[in-house]
């Protein structure tokens, strides 16, 4: 589990670095190629779209490529939103949400233990005066990160 998460985070970081490099190139030459409305756009606009460029850089690379007449990009700017399909998607999302969320939340509330679950890590100091303060200063934080929120809230 830990190895999977560590590897995923490394891959995510690599994806982000590639996205940053792509963003530099895209700001330089890609923007005017994919969208003429970006010509003359200010620094504020460039800043505001940069997080999205880093996150979605493969899509923009595809779009940049199609702007040069190579391949096609789905959902061009002139394609209208298919309203019926959108309403159907909304309905599906709500059906899923309305059937699962209340069940999970109700089960979680029903299964609440009589007492608040404390950290499963033995506290070094007995009977802290305030659970929140004890967590802030508790040395177990230095030993392991595993601290249950419940002890604070």
């Amino acid at each position: 589990m830990v190895v999977v998460v560590q590897t995923s985070l490394i891959l995510l970081a690599a994806y982000g670095v590639l996205g940053l490099i792509f963003a530099l190139a895209f700001h330089g030459r890609g923007l005017p190629a994919v969208d003429t409305n970006t010509r003359g756009a200010g620094v504020g606009f460039r800043w505001i779209i940069t997080p999205g460029i880093v996150a979605l850089w493969p899509l923009l690379a595809w779009r940049w490529r199609t702007a040069h007449g190579r391949g096609s990009f789905p959902g061009g700017p002139d394609a209208p939103v298919p309203a019926r399909r959108l309403r159907a998607a909304h309905a599906l999302a709500w059906k899923a949400l309305a059937t699962t969320a209340p069940v999970i939340v109700a089960a979680a509330l029903w299964s609440r233990p009589p007492e608040a679950p404390r950290s499963r890590i033995p506290l070094p100091s007995p009977s802290p005066s305030s659970s929140a303060d004890s967590l802030r200063s508790a040395p177990q934080n230095l030993l392991t990160n595993r601290v249950r929120h419940a002890a604070v809230f």
């Binding site: 969208d35 970006t38 923009l60 789905p74 959902g75």
Partner: peptide, 10 residues
Amino acid sequence: FWLRNLGASF
């Protein structure tokens, strides 16, 4: 910018 360049449906 994103609405235009990702397409309204996406």
